[in-house]
Every structure is written in C-alpha cells, then in structure tokens.
C-alpha cells in the first residue's frame, strides 16, 4: 500500500535538510522573488541553493517540488517564465502553478515536468480540476481550505487527479488567490507580489496596559495584559460586529488534521502538506517528525489509530496561539 505523503515546507537549505532528516517524503520551496506566495525578506532559494537542496533531497529518496504560485506581473512577466525554465532545468519533481498563462507555457515547453495545481488557483470542485487536467495535464491539485473531508471524498470520486491537502500550520480561511483583504489595507497584492500582511505594514503598539496590533493604519486587534498577541492578519483580527467584539472571521489558531487523519486518508488524499516556509528549521523538523510518526502509526494498524497526546502537545508548542483547529474539514466549523 502506498502511504500518504508527508510534504514539508522549506524556506531555506537548513529547513530543507531538517525536513529530509526528519522523515519527509517530499519538500517544497520557492525562489527568492515575487514568484511565490511567501516572498518574505531573507527567505527562499537562489538557483544554486535550489540545486543543492534538490540533490540533498534526492540522495534520501525525497521529492522536491518548486513553488511558482503567484500571477505574473504585467510589466515584468519574464521572471515568472524564466523560473518555470529553471525548475525544469534543475530537475524538480513537480512545479506548483496557479496562473493559466504559466500553466500553458509550462505544458508546451516542458511536457515532462509534472504540474501540481496550486491552492492559489482556488480549484475547489471537479469541474475546475478536470478543466485544468484537460488543458494542462496537471497530475495533482492542492485543495483550497474550503472543503469538508466528506466533500473531499466526493470530489475524489469525480476526478483521477491526485489530491493534496493542508494538514498543519497557518490557516488561510479564504479562497486563496482571490482574496484582496490584505491589499485593501496595505496596497500590496499577495497574488502578484507574493506577500500577505507584509511585515513593513505591521505595528505592535503599547497603549497603557493594552497591546494593539495594526496593519497599515487599521487596528486589527487589541489585547489585554494576559493575552498573547497574534501577528496581525485581517482574517484573524478582532472586530466589532452585531454589537459584540470577537474574532469575526477566525481565531488566531493553527490547522491540525491529526484527529481526522484516518478520514483524510480514507477520503483518497495522497499528500499531507505542512504549511510554513516562513518558519524556522526547528519548526519544520518538529512538525515533520511528528507527522512521520503519526502516518506510520496509522499504517501499522489503521483501525486502532488514535492521535497520541504527546504528538498533539508537541505540535501545539509550534502553533500560533498554541491552539489548533480542524478548520473547514469538519462541517460545524463553517
């Protein structure tokens, strides 16, 4: 039986090594520019580092996928197309794309390079997925975080494209690739510039015994002395609606599917994606290691599988807000 894949993030070479050394089946990384959705200062790979990372992964039989999931900018599209060529040249195991024009280019120019459809393409149904398959022969879709596990299972019965889901980490609660909340406040589009809630627009301000977090000039949340302040992303903000103040969209917690691992596997998912290319190598190592253990434990005896308390505890130490959620995978979250 083919085990479900543990797919780990790599923001740099040390993280990539940590992923490989801790049992990842595959890693994913992007280049140091706006061509991917984690275009943060000091993060990501040069071509030389990418090649080195790829060799390190392949030596251990680990696959390496290149992320190119933003939309080419109108006045400088060349860098996106060149990055497709680089991914093919260095021998990436797959390329993760979202833009129709890049998909077309990649399929024509590099027919043998497997294409994974990025979460940024927001393909949440088989009609869309099968359209991408027909035109670009994609082999895998990374599902947007909008479906329940039951819906994923139904979806799987209507397409033969591999399904990859987010298993752990920062939880984007919107249809990605089509969310303009961050640009509405900062003027910077995650979809073409690769960064949501850019650090340069973020402020933490002490006001007496309160701590305020701001994005641009907008107050995202105000915290009391006994509370941990989360990084200010709009969808995790605390606002006033219907006469009360609360996290109107989502609490600042992390996604963790461990409790539903059997259901996710039985729904036909082939890959568990760990979010967090912007996180440290210690995060990558810890989360990868824990998911490796959990997945192996499931296959040893599927019917007896229960997530161990110590796994959850270990994962919670890495989480934003130190709490976790099953997010959209269970219906009552919606």
């Amino acid at each position: 039986m083919n085990k479900i894949e543990v797919l780990a993030p790599a923001g740099n070479l040390p993280s990539l090594r940590a992923a490989v050394d801790n049992g990842a089946d595959a890693v994913y990384f992007g280049f140091r520019n706006a061509t991917n959705a984690r275009n943060f200062e000091g993060l990501n790979f040069s071509e030389k580092e990418a090649l080195e990372g790829l060799r390190y992964a392949h030596k251990s039989g680990v696959k390496a996928n290149v992320v190119l999931n933003t939309f080419p900018q109108v006045d400088q599209p060349d860098i996106w197309y060149k990055t497709v060529d680089i991914a093919a040249k260095i021998g990436a195991d797959a390329i993760i794309l979202a833009n129709l024009a890049l998909l077309k280019y990649c399929r024509e120019k590099h027919p043998d390079l497997p294409i994974h459809l990025s979460v940024q393409a927001s393909a949440s149904n088989y009609e869309a997925i099968n359209f991408y398959k027909k035109h670009f022969n994609i082999t895998r879709v990374i599902l947007p975080r909008v479906l329940t596990v039951e819906e994923i299972k139904q979806l799987g019965s209507k397409t033969d494209i591999e399904m990859e889901v987010f298993a752990f980490g920062g939880l984007c609660v919107m249809a990605e690739g089509r969310c303009y909340l961050s640009s509405y406040v900062t003027g910077v589009s995650p979809n073409i510039e690769g960064v949501c809630s850019p650090a340069r627009a973020v402020r933490f301000e002490n006001r007496g015994d309160k701590l305020q977090t701001r994005l641009g000039n907008v107050l995202i949340a105000e915290y009391g002395a006994d509370e941990d302040a989360a990084y200010p992303t709009i969808c995790k903000g605390r606002f006033e609606a219907n006469n009360r103040v609360y996290h109107t969209m989502e609490e600042p917690s992390s996604l963790n599917v461990l409790e539903m691992l059997p259901e996710v596997i039985e729904a036909g998912v082939v890959s568990l994606k760990i979010e967090g290319r912007q996180r440290t190598k210690s995060y990558v190592g810890t989360v990868t290691n824990t998911f490796r253990k959990a997945v192996d434990a499931y296959y040893e005896s599927p019917e007896k599988f229960r997530p161990k308390g110590k796994w959850i505890k270990t994962l919670n130490t890495t989480s934003e807000g130190a709490t976790h959620t099953l997010g959209t995978y269970q219906e009552d979250w919606q």
Binding site: V146, L147, A175, C179, A241, T248, T328, E331, Q334
Partner: peptide, 17 residues
C-alpha cells in the same frame, strides 16, 4: 474582497452555516 467556506453572518449569530 474575498470568499470563505465559512458564513460570517451566521457566525455573528453563533449559528452554523
């Protein structure tokens, strides 16, 4: 500006979608 699977109007009333 954005879509989600979650209904935020229902959430404002503590109702499931």
């Amino acid at each position: 500006l954005t879509f989600s699977a979650r209904c935020y109007t229902a959430r404002a009333f503590n109702l499931p979608k």
